[in-house]
Write a protein that binds this DNA or RNA. Structure first.
Lengths: 197, 197
DNA sequence: TACAGTTTTGAACGAGTGTTCAATTATAGG
DNA sequence: CCTATAATTGAACACTCGTTCAAAACTGTA
């Protein structure tokens, strides 16, 4: 296996992520990949094994980055719920120039592939479970901080969050209508605050 | 242009729909298409023009079928809201054996393709607008029937419906968790019923 | 039955696919 | 500086892709 230094590896994964995220797994050819990450086929195959193996590595890299963002920008903040809401607003609505697609990469991959790509789908599903678990952690901490009612069903709320984020991002790609999404996002946090289970 | 009889044309579009829906636009090769609809390349190109033109024709066929289903199963029913809710439950949750993918084909296509496939994306966006308009019509009729409050913002509710359906179907493909979806679906109809704007 | 017009066929085209591997270049230890 | 090991290169492989088109088969009219 090619001994790419850690710094280069991160850079390569970042570039591969951007391309895969924009064009999807099937829509990205290995030649595009080659020129994008500036590696020749032999090196890529020595380092990552195959197109699908590289893609899975990239997916992990993507999820890792998301997880770290929540870790640094939400956990440890004075008002966890407030910080989470801010981050969510940014992730869903901000027209971040360096985001290659309006879709979440996990959801885009889940949508794109059928069950003939089991390995990739399995990894996507597992990563989505991780994300949901992190959401639940955030909500739990908000409960402890008293910004969410103590009887809130945290797991159900985390699932609702997932469903809505998926819907919002996709709807945004369809229509570009940010206003309704902004409204729904606010609404969702109101609902969580008044939930009685 | 090849003069396919109307019956054959419907059958061809149906088969092409099933394949495209299952494997996506990029994931479907013209050879698979050829054997699936039992036409030779020359005939396909005479009748439809290109792979992408056939795909767009198939998308229209797909949306047309959905529209007709709402027309016959919802409009004209004694309780439109009730009928709509039943149909929605079926469309989102039923493990219909002859549905080639858990995803909505429009959403799957929207997710899969980037802006380099403008023609297809434009058509998908337009069809999604149509669907939303039909939802609004249904809700309006429910208002007239008195099953929804007269001050309900029908357009906003239709958007919310869209966002949720997209989220539900995708979440279902990710986790298979029907329980939470069923709960959220019920919840959504409760919210519409008590809305105050 | 003969013929003009239409439709269908399937071989073929050129470009693009993921992947491999012998040859070359770079690296590090003595 | 020399050598053994590791990493990189890029040409090449065996397919597959979307698409075309001359030839064959079919169609309906006279």
């Amino acid at each position: 296996m090619a001994n790419i230094s850690k710094f280069d590896r991160q850079e390569v994964l970042e570039k591969a992520k951007n391309l895969f995220w924009e064009k999807g797994y099937l829509g990205t050819s290995t030649r595009e990949l080659q020129s994008s990450i500036d590696m020749r086929p032999g090196s890529i195959y020595a380092a990552f094994g195959s197109k699908s193996a590289l893609f899975i590595t990239v997916l992990n890299h993507y999820a890792q980055a998301l997880s770290e963002q929540i870790q640094t920008q939400v956990f440890g903040q004075a008002d966890v719920l407030q910080a989470f809401r801010t981050l969510l607003r940014e992730l869903v609505l901000s027209p971040n120039a360096n985001r290659p697609s309006e879709m979440c990469m996990l959801v885009k991959t889940l949508s794109e592939l059928d069950e003939s790509h089991v390995e990739i789908l399995t990894q996507v599903r597992s990563l989505l479970v991780n994300v949901e678990a992190i959401f639940a952690q955030v909500l739990n901490q908000a409960k402890e901080q008293g910004t969410l009612p103590s009887d809130l069903d945290v797991n159900a709320a985390a699932k609702t969050l997932q469903v809505n984020i998926i819907g919002w991002r996709t709807y945004l790609k369809a229509t570009g209508d940010k206003e309704i999404i902004e409204h729904q996002l606010a609404q969702l946090f109101v609902q969580m605050a008044v939930s009685r289970h």
